[in-house]
């Protein structure tokens, strides 16, 4: 708990997490407003479209998660941190925990905000099925796991530019370009982490390889593996 409290103080005593939080929620809710306001028939805008802006939010969360650790390397405070708290795995865990919790809150606020804005502008999509609930309430969970993965990548790469490039290029480009490979591309794509996360949220498509909850479990497992690798490397490496 001490470690979590410490990491919380560190995170919120700089500006960038505040900025990222506002941006993440603002983009998701803002895009939902834009979509409903420009729609000819707002009543029939579905949840999937309403939450299309969550991709923006996800990018912000990835960047925020990576920066939470790369700025420590950038400014040398990682050494101060390890000097104060020599248990490096615990520090990394506390940091991932705090950033993940923040991302969870941001995801929930953004998703329910987007849904609420849609309601105000006349969208009729309700939260009737469990799939609807997953699409909205599930966003926070996906954001939280993504933030943890981003902390892990940040800890491995240690440079903001490199970590952010890898995270964004992976999630925005590689996972989709993979499907262009003849024959096997689509099969590989089905097992990509962010594709799995989206499958949990609702974009299952026909004949999905995993059910929604199994997809989430798979995404969580990949995140856990990344985190474990990062923890081992951070412990071995000189700070």
């Amino acid at each position: 708990m001490t470690l979590m409290a410490t990491e919380r103080m560190k995170l919120f005593s700089t500006r960038s997490p505040w900025f990222c939080s506002v941006l993440a929620v603002g983009l998701v809710v803002g895009f939902a407003s834009l979509l409903t306001l420009t729609s000819n028939d707002p009543a029939h805008v579905d949840l999937g479209l309403l939450l299309a802006g969550s991709q923006f939010g996800l990018m912000v969360v990835l960047v925020m998660g990576a920066l939470a650790i790369t700025t420590e390397y950038r400014f040398g405070t990682i050494r101060t941190t390890f000097q104060a708290m020599p248990g490096r795995t615990a520090v990394l865990g506390a940091k991932a925990g705090v950033v993940g919790l923040l991302a969870l809150v941001l995801g929930e606020v953004a998703a329910f905000g987007a849904w609420g804005v849609g309601k105000v502008f006349g969208v009729e999509a309700g939260l009737s099925s469990s799939a609807d609930w997953r699409a909205v309430a599930g966003l926070g969970v996906v954001f939280a796991l993504s933030a943890v993965a981003a902390v892990a990548v940040g800890a491995l790469i240690r440079q903001s530019a490199g970590a952010i490039s890898i995270l964004l290029v992976w999630s925005l480009l590689i996972e989709d370009l993979i499907s262009l490979i003849p024959n096997v591309g689509d099969n590989i794509r089905d097992w990509m982490p962010f594709v799995s996360a989206r499958r949990f949220l609702g974009n299952a498509g026909p004949d999905p390889v995993l059910g929604p909850w199994a997809s989430l479990g798979y995404f969580a497992a990949i995140t856990a593996v990344l985190f474990a690798i990062a923890a081992v490397v951070v412990n071995r490496r000189d700070a």
Binding site: T6, K10, S13, T14, R15, F75, G76, R79, T80, A84
Partner: peptide, 16 residues
């Protein structure tokens, strides 16, 4: 120089 430039002196010591 191992301090975050956008963190106040008190905040730096507070988390430590």
């Amino acid at each position: 120089k191992w301090v975050h430039p956008n963190r106040s002196a008190r905040a730096h010591l507070a988390w430590l």
